[in-house]
Design a protein around this nucleic acid. Structure first.
Length: 479
RNA sequence: GGCGCGGUAGCCAAGUGGUAAGGCCGGGGUCUGCAAAACCUCUAUUCGCGGGUUCGAUUCCCGCCCGCGCCUCCA
């Protein structure tokens, strides 16, 4: 089935990979590893993960690259502050990032290049730009991209040159004032930054002296190295549109004279309580924060992908709660259907497969939602409505099995793993005294001693256990 | 100021030129000694406001109001 995605560059929904069948280069701007990624970062990475999964479901061979920015002002500043080498410092946060990704059930990219691991590629690219007169060396040994040499500049973010230049003049403030004297135009951006005192030992040799790469150049150099000078899809948060992606396009296309990424895939931001998430407002959450509050990573994943990617999603705890209830409903319904189909629910996940060439019988709508501009929200909606129909119409085992296979396939594309509770092993976790109370209460109930039974039930409640009665017995569940 | 996104039930959120998916919460019911759980079921004559086009607009056009984001290194 054809996959379509809105392209920021053209403002239209376009087919993905219409010509280069079966193979797709997908580059994502990854995190700067100077601290724990927050759930806003993860919303983007998660949506990218879903998109990759959708392509894979449809049989496209994706080459997924996501970089790690391991040298910039923040990483340098923090590592120095913590008295660690830049390498050790960024390694520490990379490990943390990977652990978070795994918890969130994200597929690892095929390549995860680092900026410091690709100094040579970046230097080479900068040299090409200087040779082509698209870049120049400033007095201090920094190298800048000459944006007036690239007439397409501003196309992605719809800024014309006059605008970018006046904007730069009026808003650059004093942050980069030292650089400004060296630049031909204030809007020119750094490809290579000459070494400064505050960088410590973090500098590399280059034809222009010691220094370090500017931020934008790493993505150009690394995407081209792993995916070629032109590739299919480039993704990131909407905030990267300008200047980061604009700069990437300028650098790359000026150097290669070829179109860079064909398709630009931008995710809207996650908001918190209706506004931007920021450290200073104290509303910046990490995965760890939420897990510590008792929300499983799967629930967080569900919430973060439950809104469509072009729409900003407002994070609230009420929303998290809703996500938790939603995923639980999904789990119960699937467990019931598995029972009807005489399938062990633990084998449910294994039922997923690649999507068929033709249509799905039951979950085609959900599949189309995913393929048509990654409409995760509609996809989930259609999952629920299809499930409702299924449980009412209760078809025979064979069609039910087909339905479950399709559902497993869709959920695999969403990366949602259902966790079925009350597995056989779980009973062991019940403390003996709790079991004893529950037994007593059951006995009292059999004896129709309601008062005693209710009292015991309250007691169990206090100990944090809930009784789920059914006809000829009961289950215990942690409250 | 420029660019972009959005305003749909208590909350979250799809969507289409033909009369409003889904989730959460809440109500009702079945079950139960009562609960809980589970299952079933109900909840927007209406889609920010005012015009226009149309047989018909939430969906297209114009204007207005409100919210949010980006505007040089934040996913």
């Amino acid at each position: 089935m054809k996959i379509q995605l809105h392209n920021t560059l053209t403002g239209k929904r376009e087919d993905i990979d219409p010509e280069n069948k079966g193979k797709s280069g997908f580059y994502c701007c990854g995190p700067t590893v100077y601290g724990p990624a927050h759930i806003g970062n993860f919303r983007t990475f998660l949506l990218q993960d879903v998109f990759r999964r959708v392509m894979e479901m449809e049989g496209i061979n994706v080459h997924h690259v996501r970089n790690l920015t391991d040298v910039d002002d923040k990483t340098i500043r923090q590592s120095l502050a913590e008295n660690m080498s830049l390498a050790d410092f960024t390694e520490m946060w990379t490990v943390k990032f990977h652990a978070d990704c795994e918890q969130l059930n994200m597929r690892a990219p095929h390549d995860e290049p680092t900026a410091t691991g690709h100094i040579k590629e970046q230097v080479d690219l900068i040299e090409r730009l200087i040779d082509a007169n698209h870049a120049y060396v400033a007095q201090d040994g920094s190298v800048y991209f000459r944006i007036t040499s690239f007439s397409e500049y501003g196309r992605l973010s719809n800024l014309d040159q006059r605008e970018t230049q006046t904007q730069a003049t009026s808003s650059s403030g004093d942050r980069n004032d030292a650089d400004e004297y060296d630049r031909e135009t204030v809007a020119d951006f750094a490809l290579w930054k000459a070494h400064k005192e505050e960088d410590g030992d973090n500098a590399w040799d280059s034809p222009w002296g010691r220094g370090r790469p500017g931020w934008h150049i790493e993505c150009s150099a690394m995407s081209m190295k792993y995916l070629g000078e032109s590739f299919d899809i480039h993704g990131g948060g909407i905030d990267l549109c300008f200047p980061h992606h604009e700069n990437e396009i300028a650098q790359s296309e000026a150097a290669t004279k070829k179109p860079f990424a064909r398709h630009w895939f931008h995710c809207a931001h996650l908001m918190v309580d209706g506004g931007k998430m920021s450290k200073s407002l104290g509303n910046l959450y990490t995965l760890e924060d939420l897990v510590a509050k008792g929300y499983p990573a799967q629930v967080i994943r569900y919430l973060l992908i439950s809104g469509s990617y072009r729409q900003s999603l407002n994070f609230t705890f009420q929303g998290l709660q809703a996500a938790q209830s939603g995923i639980q409903k999904l789990e119960k319904t699937v467990a019931n259907l598995c029972q009807s189909a005489e399938i062990n629910k633990n084998e449910f996940r294994g039922l997923s497969k690649k999507a068929p060439n033709g249509e799905m019988e039951f979950f085609q709508k959900s599949r189309e939602d995913l393929c048509h501009d990654l409409n995760t929200s509609a996809c989930l909606g259609n999952i629920f409505s299809t499930l409702k129909k299924l449980s009412i119409e209760t078809p025979d085992k064979a069609p039910l099995r087909t339905a479950l296979e399709e559902l497993a396939t869709i959920l695999e594309a969403l990366g949602i793993q259902l966790i079925f509770e009350k597995e056989d092993g779980d009973k062991d976790d019940i403390p003996p005294e709790v079991n004893e109370l529950a037994e007593k209460r059951w006995q009292a109930k059999q004896d129709k001693d309601w008062e005693a039974a209710d009292q015991l039930r309250d007691e169990l409640q206090h100990k944090g256990w809930k009784i789920l009665d059914h006809k000829d017995g009961y289950d215990l569940e942690k409250a």
